[in-house]
Amino acid sequence: MSQDHSLNPETMPHDPAKATTEGKHKFFGLWFFLGGETVLFACFFGTFIALRNSTAGGPTSQELFGLELVFLMTILLLTSSLTSVYAIYHMKNNDFKKMQLWFGITALLGIGFLACELYEFAHYITEYGFTFRSSAFGSSFYTLVGFHGGHVVFGLSWLIALMVRNAKRGLNLYNAPKYNTFSLYWHFIDVVWVFIFTVVYLMGMVS
């Protein structure tokens, strides 16, 4: 670890996530990924919008959805977005413990969101018999919302791995870019959720 010294400077630069070339590359790489993710989710949204009324005699969106649970999930994910902003704020102030604390809260809120989603899916399957195979609406619904849920699972695993691996290391120029790219990814998950609650749930309840 001959680089150890240069990655642990006496004074942290203003934006530790982008102070090294590798950090800058991680930053741009993640945005490339998010550009691709936008298109990927657009395909799922397009499919869902096209097929959402093809219920094949099965449950419709008006029969299934309830506003309360979706509102709770939205608040959980939105708040977790803010807590990761707090974590990055503490990273810029070079306060590692507070950064870990706020990322920990982010993880808990993400787990809360995931628990609600699992409850929701289980409720649809057991109470309404609404599964992936029920109708074209069912397939496109579980693909879109389930894929977003999969992104939350991946994000949580990423965050927990980062937090555990770096717990004793403290903040340095090696791991600051990693935390920063995670927080950008997490905000993007929230962006996708905003369109899911609007297009899938809210539009499903009005029309």
């Binding site: 945005w31 490339f32 998010l34 993710e37 936008t38 989710f41 657009a42 949204f45 919008i49």
Partner: peptide, 13 residues
């Protein structure tokens, strides 16, 4: 990158 992604997304939808 994001606006490029949004452009393709709009066309796709």
């Amino acid at each position: 990158l994001i606006f490029g992604g949004i452009w393709v997304a709009v066309l796709t939808i």
